[in-house]
């Protein structure tokens, strides 16, 4: 056990899985950071420095730098997975899904189903999400709801270093395509993480706090923002259950239902947008299944229905903060 960053925990999972299974290969831009220049090898170790050091351990045959060609490289990863490898492809920003949608949403997601179950596609796509770095509208989105729309994909949104390591190991060993969404603002977050290899099953939410007055469901970085709100509310005598689903497909509805059954109040905090997003999805499921348990309308705390702006002042008002969560919780407590 030692204190590790979210970034280091992800790197450790990659390393363990590459040691464990020779069919695990990494595919992405600048992973070996990069190939072909006259200078230092492994200078970058990936655009997010997550894969630093791996090319030295596993060689260029297993850490494959790609041209700037998301469609071809993600497509190749799908083909390699269907042919029996366990590729881990890196899509630098989830926003870039625009140039490789067909590979993910049509090829990876539907390969097994379309061909009548003859194959499996054990592919992991690591991608990054989230606002907060003034990167603007095309480098800051939290697009995981888009992936969850498609049956055939599994979607992971880890909020902590411990969860990131265990869930990535599960993703790589899983026999289906998994989209693993890393929030860039969490890379430096540090906590105790076992040095040994471990896995965390998909579809099991983490109960971050137990309170009993209000159920707060939050995802990815919003778990930490919600935790701040929950602490402040506790000082005012409002005790919240805080639930982090950890995976949006599969979604652990049981844990959410159990909590809502007891509290009768639900606030969902999501960095994805307010339309067709995860918050809307969870709200719809709870409204349908648990209507009689609800004592107040469900509240969603999400960004506005707008692209992500770059200026810090605008971006700060885009991303949900603790005060908005506190206000939402208070509003459901009034009912």
């Amino acid at each position: 056990m030692s204190v590790k960053s979210y970034r280091a925990a992800i790197r450790e999972a990659l390393e363990h899985e590459m040691q464990r299974d020779p069919d695990v290969v990494l595919i992405g831009q600048d992973l070996a950071g990069g190939a072909g220049g006259g200078g230092e090898d492994d200078a970058w170790g990936g655009p997010m420095a997550v894969t630093k050091g791996l090319v030295g351990k596993f060689g260029r045959e297993r850490v494959l730098d790609t041209p700037v060609s998301e469609a071809a490289s993600i497509g190749a990863a799908v083909g390699a997975a269907a042919a029996g490898l366990r590729p881990v492809a890196e899509l630098m920003f989830c926003d870039f899904i625009g140039v490789c949608c067909d590979q993910i949403l049509n090829q990876a997601a539907k390969y097994r189903y379309t061909f009548g179950g003859q194959d499996q596609v054990p592919l992991t796509i690591r991608t990054t999400i989230g606002a907060g770095q003034q990167l603007g509208s095309q480098h800051s989105q939290a697009l995981y709801p888009l992936f969850s729309y498609f049956p055939g994909l599994k979607v992971v949104v880890p909020a902590t270093a411990y969860d990131a390591k265990g869930l990535l190991a599960t993703a790589i060993r899983d026999n289906d395509p998994v989209i693993f969404c890393e929030h860039r603002l969490l890379y430096r977050l540090r906590e105790d993480v076992p040095d040994e290899s471990y896995t965390i099953p998909f579809g099991e939410a983490r109960i971050v706090e137990e309170g009993g007055d209000v159920t707060v469901v939050a995802l990815s970085r919003m778990v930490h923002v919600a935790a701040e709100a929950v602490r402040a509310l506790r000082e005012d005598g409002i005790d919240c259950d805080l639930i982090d689903p950890r995976t949006t497909t599969p979604l652990d509805t049981d844990t959410i239902f159990d909590s809502v059954e007891a509290t009768g109040r639900l606030v969902i905090v999501d960095e994805a947008g307010p339309r067709c997003g995860t918050a809307s999805d969870i709200a719809a499921i709870v409204a349908e299944e648990m209507f009689n348990a609800l004592r107040a309308p469900i509240r969603r705390v999400t960004p506005p229905y707008a692209p992500v702006p770059a200026a810090p002042e605008l971006e700060r008002s885009y991303v949900p903060d603790a005060s908005r969560i506190i206000a939402a919780v208070r509003s459901v407590m009034e009912r």
Binding site: P194, E196, S197, Y198
Partner: peptide
């Protein structure tokens, strides 16, 4: 408690353990 369950889970999930 939730913490006890979490602690046991974290331990049991380590493959070598």
């Amino acid at each position: 408690s939730r913490e006890m369950v979490e602690q046991v889970l974290r331990f049991k999930r380590i493959e070598a353990a």
